[in-house]
Each structure stands twice: as C-alpha cells, then as structure tokens.
Amino acid sequence: MAYSEKVIDHYENPRNVGSMDKNDPQVATGMVGAPACGDVMKLQLKITDEGIIEDAKFKTYGCGSAIASSSLVTEWVKGKSIEEAAEIKNTDISEELALPPVKIHCSILAEDAIKAAIEDYQAKQDTQKG
C-alpha cells in the first residue's frame, strides 16, 4: 500500500514530537489506543487561561498513518481555542492526508486524542475550582 506524499512528509519530519509535564495545570494530556493495530498515541496541549492552545506535542507508537495523523493534529490545534479544536473531525484528517480506507482508524485515533486531552483539561479545571 502506498502512502500519500503528505503522510510520508509527516512521517519523515514529524512536527512537535515530545512531551510536556503532565502535572503542569496548563497541560492537558490525551492518551488513546487502538486494539486493532496496537497503536498508542499521546497528545498534550498547553492551554492558556483564555482557553487558547498555545503549544501541542505528541508521541505516537504506530504505523506511518498514525504518526502522520497525530503530527498533523498538533499543527492544526496550535492557536485554536478548545472549542475550535474539539470540532476537528477524523474526516478532516483523513482527507488532508489522503488516507486509504484501511487507515481511517488512525485519523479516528487522532480525533479521539484531541477529545481525551480536552476532557483531561476540563477535569483539571474542575479540580482547581474545587
């Protein structure tokens, strides 16, 4: 199966690989995994008090499409508000990367990672408020 040029570009030059301190109150962490392929994805967002995502990092163990999907997502969410980021759909990702049908689940994983990170952020906000 041939990867699209965009997938290869993200795979060979992944953007924003890395980790942030998950205990930092401004950092939200989303962890998701896909049993079908064993892929594991960690997406971290640094969110300002105004609810703007100022930085994003990812670490993904998986195939090229999973890495490309998470890399693309970190580029997309930067500068967005949480609400805007929550609107990113897996179809946006799979279209941008021209993923074949068997790799759609990689884009679903990336969408779910954003959602999981936002949930983590909201849970953190709630505990801070007490």
Binding site: T29, M31, V32, G33, A34, P35, H105, L109, D112, A116
Partner: peptide, 8 residues
C-alpha cells in the same frame, strides 16, 4: 475493533 481504548 477500531474503537478507541481510553484507559489512561
């Protein structure tokens, strides 16, 4: 099969 595992 494709649904996501979320157990952190």
């Amino acid at each position: 099969e494709q649904s996501t595992v979320k157990d952190t």
